[in-house]
Computed example of a mutant assay.
Amino acid sequence: MLNTLEYGSRTDEPDLLIVHGLYGSGRNWGAVAKRLAPERRIVSVDQRNHGHSPWFDSHSYHDMARDLAEVIEAQGAPMDVMGHSMGGKASMILALTRPDLVNRLIVADIAPVQYTHDQNQFIAAMRAVDLSRVEKRSDAIDQLAQNVDDPTLRSFFTQSLDLNGRKWRLNLDVLEAEMPKVIGFPEISGNFEGRTLFLSGSESDYVTPEHRPRIRELFPKARFAKITGAGHWLHAEKPREFVQSVQAWLNATSAQASNS
């Protein structure tokens, strides 16, 4: 089973499962989880081939959805699910294939479509780091600067670095081989009838008006919101606004459910 981190205690609100994106981990979401935890229990996962979770030879969205289903089943009740980027796609497949496990769905800055951007350049950058010369995280950040321009990304990548073992907690070989699946989205029919929020950064181009017909086909109750001034990494760039948006939508939909 996937490695999980838990925050807070069970309340009258459903538990919330947080699913990170490519090259991330559950720990990356600690600040957001702690801010959300007073109102609900939070479970944050390390996805397969990431963090402290097991490594596998495959990395498809159906694989990831089955992993998430196993986590929710172990909790003993359906959960609200929030996924970012790759985690958002995995969460969408989970909701479409196992709607019995998902109360509400929050998809952070991703659409159920094929993208053209390849993320393998970052795998090459991580492989280029001479781990034998890394004593502290800043050493790796300095080396990454040769190939990664964005300082936020350099810091983000090194959160998946095991300093003691001098290795990446990312299955770089499989992620590289499976990248076409990661940037794609499986052909799938049916829809998820639960309440769904697509929350995007106003400066991001990952979710565009052209994507909305397909989104509404799969998620007929979808609602859309944007965080002003945020890009694809909206939860890291605008954490307070991100948490406020998530809390407001969860509270509003809880009130609607209780009044219906």
Rank of each mutant, 00 (worst) to 15 (best):
V19K: 04
E178A: 15
D57K: 12
S245I: 06
T152Y: 10
E217G: 10
D173E: 15
I42S: 10
L36G: 02
D150A: 10
V182F: 04
L131S: 04
L2E: 06
P213K: 12
S53A: 10
Q244R: 14
F242D: 05
P38W: 05
W29V: 06
Q119P: 08
L36Q: 09
L36W: 11
L144W: 02
S189V: 13
H52C: 10
S254P: 01
R212P: 00
Q121D: 13
M179F: 07
R137Y: 08
F156T: 08
N191W: 07
A128Y: 06
R27K: 14
T228R: 13
R27Y: 07
L170S: 12
S202G: 12
A225C: 05
N28C: 04
M79E: 01
P220I: 11
H117T: 15
G194D: 10
L16D: 06
E176F: 00
A65C: 03
A95S: 03
V246L: 11
I183C: 03
F185T: 09
A65H: 01
R40M: 02
L250A: 03
G201V: 03
R35D: 14
L197M: 12
P38N: 08
L105P: 05
H20T: 09
H50P: 12
L96K: 03
Y7N: 07
W168V: 05
T158P: 03
V246D: 07
S25P: 08
L234E: 11
L96Q: 00
D142T: 11
L218T: 11
A111P: 07
A95R: 02
T4D: 09
G190F: 12
R216M: 12
N251G: 11
L175C: 06
Q143H: 09
P54R: 07
H211I: 09
S85Q: 00
A177F: 00
V102M: 01
S202K: 10
L36R: 06
R169I: 03
L175R: 02
P54W: 03
A252T: 15
Q47F: 00
P38F: 03
A236Y: 05
S138W: 02
